[in-house]
């Protein structure tokens, strides 16, 4: 308990929150401008790379993960790892249209006619905006 109080006194000098906020805004502007170059790699980098940087900055400086005990960070990281695990386990089934020994005829581009049901309209490809 005493440590908690001591912990606190060390950080009595507040970081310059406004400066961090300003950096975040600059990053936001970059992430909006990035796609205007219309280069896919740049778009992805400016969109998701910057999102990660922004999240890191908010977590570190605003949520004060930098002064929290390490295991709080590990806890958050573990949750993210579980999500990656989930993604890795599910993506082979949900993301692919042609798996090992199965196809999704309604969504697949390669094998349109396989499902012998002429009454089915392929929605996935058309996007379905006509509904």
């Amino acid at each position: 308990m005493a440590e908690a109080a001591a912990h606190h006194d060390e950080h009595h000098e507040h970081p310059n929150y406004v400066r961090i906020w300003a950096i975040l805004l600059v990053l936001l502007i970059i992430s909006v401008l990035g796609p205007m170059l219309e280069i896919r790699v740049v778009t992805l980098l400016t969109a998701f790379g910057i999102a990660v940087v922004k999240a890191y900055m908010v977590a570190k400086n605003f949520m004060h993960l930098n002064i929290e005990p390490r295991y709080v960070v590990y806890l958050m990281a573990t949750m993210l790892v579980f999500m990656l695990l989930f993604f890795a386990g599910v993506a082979p089934d949900v993301m692919r249209f042609e798996g090992d020994n199965w196809v999704k005829p309604m969504q697949s581009t390669a094998a349109p006619g396989t499902l012998g049901h002429p009454d089915f309209v392929p929605h996935g490809e058309a996007g379905g905006e006509h509904h």
Binding site: F82, M83, F86, Q107, G124, E125
Partner: peptide
């Protein structure tokens, strides 16, 4: 922090599902 941890997996679940579908459907 525990609330945040359990929220991470809630949003993680829906976003992971979204990303899978999004990557699969170029038409989106």
């Amino acid at each position: 922090w525990w609330v945040v941890a359990s929220e991470i997996v809630i949003f993680g679940g829906i976003l992971a599902s979204y990303i899978m579908f999004r990557l699969a459907h170029d038409a989106w």
